[in-house]
Structure formats: structure tokens, C-alpha cells
């Protein structure tokens, strides 16, 4: 027993500049503090911002990531448990705050790695992507994958999967109809916006035209003013 105390006293704890939860190391770490069970709301601060995370060292970010991950696990467990017990999970926005912090943290780590790779190799070191045509003849972003041993021309399975490309009359017909659909959708949206502007002009003849122009930059306002749709129920002066 005495030896144990000695060991415990001599453990050098790392100095943390980030607040941490009490270490329990048991299954109850998946659950919130008992004081927060069944309450209406749990007050918390905001999420970490990118500019704050940029000030932190790599090891601090590493520690913070696991703190956030544990918190997220805890919150998701609590949410699941509350759903099981048919009670309201207090302050569900906590999950979003933690996830937002984790996204920001990852962005900062990527930023640092990118800077290193650009300096050392001239490439950003991210997973390569390129814009190609997919099987339907439409443009899409293809994210490349890493393959050990076999290069592309020897990888028969990959080539077989990638080999299908629509072509000929089928593709031409499809693309014609697809483009027509997109065109009609855009045209309808334009007409809808125009009609809405007419409705606004009818209801608020003295409104701020600059604000209207800002909100609907694609609508010809002079044309809308002259439209039959924008005439109000009054005798024009």
C-alpha cells in the first residue's frame, strides 16, 4: 500500500492548458454528470474557433481532440439513453458545438500539414482529386485511392469496374433531356422570381428599390414595374 502511494506521488502530470473532465476510467465516462440527469437544460460555452486553435501546439490539439471525442461519445450515449427512456435530452446543441470544434480542429491540422508538404514537396499532400466524366457523361469530382503493388494498367478489377462509359445515341439522348430539364428548372425559377418581385411591387410600391435589386439581382425590375402583375388596386396618379 505504501509503495502505491509513493508511485502515485511521483507521477508527473503534464501541465494542461485545456480544462479536462475528472478521470474516472470506467463505463460511467460514457454518461453525463449525475447532476445533469433529467434537467431542463445544461449550460455550455461556445465551440472552439479556427483562429483560437491556430494558437495551440500540436500536442495540445492532439489532447483536445480526444477530450472532444470523449465528450461527443458521452453526448451521443446520453441522447440514445434519453430516447430509450422517453425523456427529453437537455441542450442537444452541445453535440453540434463539439462537432463544430472537431471540424475546426481538423481544419487547423490539415492547414499545418499542407504548409509542410507545400514547402518540402511542392504538393499539398492531400488525397488527390480530379474532375472527370462519370458513367452518365456528367462531370464529377473523382477522389483517387491508394493501391499497393499493382499500377492502374495491371489492376484488371479496377479497369473492369471503371470501363463502363455510356456512349452513342443513348448518351446523346440522355444528355439532351438532362440539359433540357436543367434549363426548364432555371427558367421556372427565373419566372418565379419575376412574379415574386411583381407581387412585392404591388404590395409595397414605396419600398427601397436598391434593397430589392440586391435581393433579386437577376430580375429586370423596370420590366416588372410595367408588368400587369405589379399593378395595385388603385388608380395610378
Amino acid at each position: 500500500m505504501k509503495a502505491f502511494h509513493i508511485i502515485k506521488e511521483h507521477i508527473i502530470l503534464p501541465r494542461r492548458s485545456i480544462s479536462v473532465t475528472a478521470q474516472r476510467n470506467d463505463l460511467m465516462e460514457f454518461f453525463d454528470d449525475k447532476n445533469n440527469w433529467g434537467v431542463q437544460e445544461v449550460k455550455t460555452g461556445r465551440s472552439w474557433k479556427v483562429e483560437e486553435l491556430r494558437l495551440k501546439s500540436n500536442s495540445d490539439l492532439h489532447k483536445l481532440w480526444y477530450i472532444l471525442l470523449k465528450e461527443k461519445n458521452m453526448l451521443l450515449t446520453m441522447e440514445h439513453e434519453c430516447n430509450e427512456k422517453m425523456i427529453i435530452f437537455p441542450s442537444p446543441e452541445r453535440i453540434d458545438k463539439v462537432e463544430e470544434s472537431m471540424e475546426n480542429l481538423e481544419a487547423v491540422v490539415r492547414e499545418r500539414n499542407k504548409a509542410y508538404h507545400l514547402l518540402e514537396t511542392g504538393e499539398n499532400g492531400e488525397r488527390p482529386e480530379k474532375i472527370t466524366n462519370n458513367a452518365f457523361g456528367l462531370q464529377h469530382v473523382y477522389k483517387e485511392s491508394e493501391y499497393a503493388i499493382i499500377p492502374k494498367h495491371m489492376n484488371e478489377e479496377w479497369l473492369r469496374k471503371d470501363s463502363y462509359r455510356a456512349s452513342g445515341k443513348d448518351l446523346r439522348d440522355f444528355l439532351l433531356k438532362y440539359k433540357e430539364k436543367v434549363f426548364v428548372e432555371n427558367k421556372k425559377k427565373k419566372q418565379r422570381d419575376f412574379n415574386h418581385v411583381c407581387g412585392l411591387l404591388k404590395r409595397f410600391p414605396n419600398m427601397d428599390m436598391e434593397a430589392l435589386k440586391e435581393q433579386y439581382p437577376d430580375v429586370d425590375i423596370e420590366k416588372a414595374k410595367n408588368s400587369k402583375r405589379s399593378r395595385g388596386h388603385f388608380v395610378p396618379a
Binding site: 492548458s17 485545456i18 483560437e52 494558437l55 501546439s57 500540436n58 500539414n113 514547402l119
Partner: peptide, 27 residues
Amino acid sequence: EQPKDTLADDVIAITFSPKLETFEMSI
């Protein structure tokens, strides 16, 4: 401040010093 909040002084404390290494290398 709520129990799980990081203190404002800790948030603005600068612990990062730029070095020619990736995140993984430094960890």
C-alpha cells in the same frame, strides 16, 4: 463560466511554435 468551459486566459495562450514538421511527426 460553466464547469466544462475552457478559461478565457487558456484559450488565448499561445503554445504553438512553427517548426518544419507535420502534425503526425510532432506527435
